[in-house]
C-alpha cells in the first residue's frame, strides 16, 4: 500500500461502555492451553485487527466472542451481557454479533435472497416483505443486487463472501466479526471484499477482524493486536506497531509476512 493512503477517521465513542470486554480469558482444547489470560477491551465503533502466526489462537479468540468456542476461565462481556451457559443471554448476543467465515458458509440450497432473509424472518420475526426489502438494501450496499435470485454455487468466491457479509448485516448487528475473510479467495477477488469491508467501517460499525492483509489494517484499523502462542503480545495503532515493533516475536512475524511483498 502506498504511504499516502488516507486513514479512516476514527469512530470510537469514548463515552460509551466497551462493546466487547475480555477479562483474563483462558481456553483449553483438551490439555492444550490455547488462550492464555487474554484481556481485551473493544470500544463501540472501534475497528480492531488481530494478527499473528498460525496456531496463535486468533481465530479461537473471535470464535469465543459469539460462543462458537466455549472459554473455560475468565469473563467475556458483549454489549453488557456476559457470555455463560445461559441460553437466553446467548441468543441475545448472537443476534447482535454478526460473523463472516473464511469459507463463506453460504447455504447452498437457498437463493442469495433467501440466505439473507432466513434469520431476520425466523429469529427477529420480521415479516417476509420487510426482510426482503432489507436484504435487497444490503445486497445493493455490497454491490451485487442483481444476483439475488441466484444460488451460491453460481457465484464467484468474491461474490459469495460479499453475500456472506450482507447476510450477517441483515441481522443489524452492532458488532461484526471477520475470521480471515479473504484467505480462501483468489488474489483478484480480495480487493472487492476488502473494499466492502472498508465501506462497512465507514459506517461506524464495531469490527474485529482476523486477517493477514496488512494494507487493510493500516487503512481501517484503530488498533492492531498481535497474538502469539495464545496470548496478546503487543497492541497499538497500526503505524506504531508495524513501523516500531517492540517485541522480538512481533519483529520475527513482520519479517516473515513482509518478505512476500
Amino acid at each position: 500500500m502506498s504511504a499516502t493512503t488516507e486513514y479512516l477517521a476514527s469512530a470510537v465513542r469514548v463515552d460509551a461502555p466497551p462493546a466487547i470486554l475480555l477479562d483474563k480469558v483462558n481456553k483449553w482444547f483438551g490439555s492444550l492451553h490455547v488462550l492464555r489470560d487474554v484481556c481485551l477491551n473493544v470500544a463501540t465503533g472501534e475497528r480492531v485487527v488481530v494478527c499473528g502466526p498460525s496456531g496463535s489462537g486468533k481465530s479461537t479468540l473471535i470464535r469465543c466472542i459469539n460462543r462458537l468456542e466455549i472459554h473455560q476461565e475468565g469473563r467475556i462481556i458483549v454489549n453488557g451481557t456476559e457470555l455463560s451457559d445461559d441460553i437466553r443471554a446467548l441468543d441475545e448476543i448472537r443476534r447482535e454479533v454478526g460473523m463472516v467465515f473464511q469459507s463463506f458458509n453460504l447455504f447452498p440450497h437457498l437463493t442469495i435472497l433467501e440466505n439473507c432473509t432466513l434469520a431476520p424472518i425466523w429469529v427477529r420475526n420480521m415479516p417476509k416483505q420487510e426482510a426482503e426489502a432489507l436484504a435487497m438494501e444490503y445486497l445493493t450496499r455490497v454491490r451485487i443486487p442483481e444476483q439475488a435470485k441466484k444460488y451460491p454455487g453460481q457465484l464467484s468466491g468474491g461474490q459469495q463472501q460479499r453475500v456472506a457479509i450482507a447476510r450477517a448485516l441483515c441481522m443489524k448487528p452492532k458488532i461484526m466479526l471477520f475470521d480471515e475473510p479473504t484467505s480462501a479467495l483468489d488474489p483478484e477477488m480480495i480487493k472487492e471484499v476488502l473494499d466492502t469491508m472498508i465501506g462497512l467501517a465507514e459506517t461506524g460499525m464495531t469490527m474485529i477482524c482476523v486477517t493477514h492483509e496488512m494494507g487493510f489494517a493500516r487503512t481501517v484499523a484503530d488498533r492492531v493486536v498481535f497474538m502469539d502462542q495464545g496470548e496478546i503480545v503487543e497492541t497499538g495503532a497500526p503505524t506504531q506497531l508495524f513501523e516500531n515493533p517492540q517485541t522480538d516475536r512481533l519483529k520475527l512475524f513482520l519479517s516473515q509476512i513482509l518478505r512476500g511483498h
Binding site: N66, L68, D91, M99, S103, F107, A168
Partner: peptide, 26 residues
C-alpha cells in the same frame, strides 16, 4: 461440512430451526 452448522448457529437460529432449515434439507 461443519461450517454450515456454524453459520446457522452464528445467525442465532435455534436447534430445531437450524436442523429444519439448513441441516436436513442438505
Amino acid at each position: 461440512p461443519r461450517g454450515q452448522y456454524e453459520a446457522a448457529e452464528a445467525l442465532g437460529l435455534s436447534y430445531w430451526q437450524k436442523t429444519g432449515f439448513i441441516i436436513l434439507p442438505q
